[in-house]
Design a protein around this nucleic acid. Structure first.
Lengths: 235, 235
DNA sequence: CAGTGGTCTAGACCACACT
DNA sequence: GTGTGGTCTAGACCACTGA
């Protein structure tokens, strides 16, 4: 396919009309039938181009009402949140992992709420430290639901990180993420080799299964040095 | 369409086989032809289901090699970064905007690098404060490239925020985002009604046009109270 | 080289939502 | 009611890539 596929050429063409302002937000654009005639192709081909542009948020389509240029409102931004070890190795640094703590303990209120269990329900609690070239890179504080994932109790997590083990052994179906900034203090500061009062970037994640809540985890990163990035994204 | 469209039913069916572990990561699954026979539909219908699952990162497809269950590696997480005013109004709070500063000034080194211009190139510098119910919600520090967007020089930005004006008037084609944590200090702390040393969440964005760099902007949020969230996302 | 996925077509039927 | 988008089909050709 030396030349672009027709539906891709049509996408580009339509996108250019939006980008150049030929078609402005809110404008009604020609129907599929009409565009198919103009481009000299089947309606299905135009349809695919239009459908993908709508999925990307460039157009809005409604039956009978036709297709309009979307009014730019919110735009979703996709961040890659890979396994820490992959992330670290991708930078060329040596990855190293340390298990700080592993216990079955009663869920504290926040984590209980997160897993939708009663406070005090026993769960598997892990604290791990991930190093890049011997420098602390990420502190992981995780609770695993032992009702949903009973087999986790028999894993010692000394060699493989909990994240890796879960990803490879316990498929999840749903996830929720949250990001905020906080200050390093006590344990967290010491583990990350920071001073009390240094900024930390906190990423929280909860995942679910068909069976129920799987895990809730908080990742702490040194705030100034660590960045979450998107790739350079063409719209 | 009371019942799910066939291609959606097929997607669900295939996804279930992955989720349940019937098909494990790395497994080769039947070809389109074969699946079409099994589901009793046209190959194109199966193709669409497979293509969408591949786009979602569940499957990996290669010509001749066939379709395999993807090995879970990095997973991209989509955050919504809407216009502040929409974000604030969505919570039911009253939105209010204040222009703190507007000047044509030479680009500082960091911003110059960001816009791919020489340090000291004149650009439009804006500092704005966004309020939710009279409480400072976000501090915006923006540089607009006046070579790419000369018409911005004639806008006073007293009424409409720069973000809104740009979104509605200057279509962008590419964007890059970065998130990190920092400490409030000086101006930033005062504007956001924080104390020096409080955590702030910083979101940086750069956008481009066909014509060149459009704008680079840094959004500061009170770190403890503000969170970037994903919706509850089913995979 | 051969098999797989990628795409296109022409025609068809349908659901939905405006009028 | 009626026009628009949403989907399916059957068949076809092609490009890529692994064997």
């Amino acid at each position: 396919m030396r030349e672009l596929a027709p539906y891709l050429r049509i996408k580009e063409d339509l996108l250019d009309r939006v980008r150049s302002g030929t078609w402005k937000p809110g404008d009604l654009i020609p129907g599929e039938q009409r565009l198919a005639e103009q481009f000299g192709c089947a309606r299905a081909t135009v349809h695919r181009a239009l459908r993908e542009l709508a999925e990307e948020g460039v157009l809005e389509r409604r039956r009978k009402a036709g297709t309009r240029v979307a009014r730019p409102t919110s735009r979703s931004v996709a961040f890659d949140i890979p396994l820490v070890e992959d992330e670290i190795r991708a930078t060329g640094a040596r990855y190293h992992y340390e298990l700080l703590e592993r216990e079955i303990a009663p869920l504290p209120p926040a984590e209980a709420a997160s897993l939708e269990r009663a406070t005090g329900t026993p769960a598997l609690h892990l604290r791990c430290l991930h190093f890049a070239d011997r420098r602390p890179y990420q502190l992981e504080d995780r609770w695993i639901d032992i009702d949903t994932v009973p087999e986790a109790v028999d894993v010692d997590f000394a060699a493989e990180g909990a994240n890796g083990w879960l990803v490879h052994n316990v498929p999840w179906t749903d996830a929720e993420h949250s990001i905020h900034a906080d200050l390093a203090a006590g344990e967290i500061a010491r583990s990350l080799n920071l001073t009390d009062g240094d900024p930390v970037l906190v990423v929280e994640r909860r995942t679910w299964n068909d069976k129920g809540p799987v895990t809730t985890v908080r990742f702490h990163h040194p705030g100034r040095s660590h960045r979450l990035r998107t790739a350079f994204v063409a719209r």
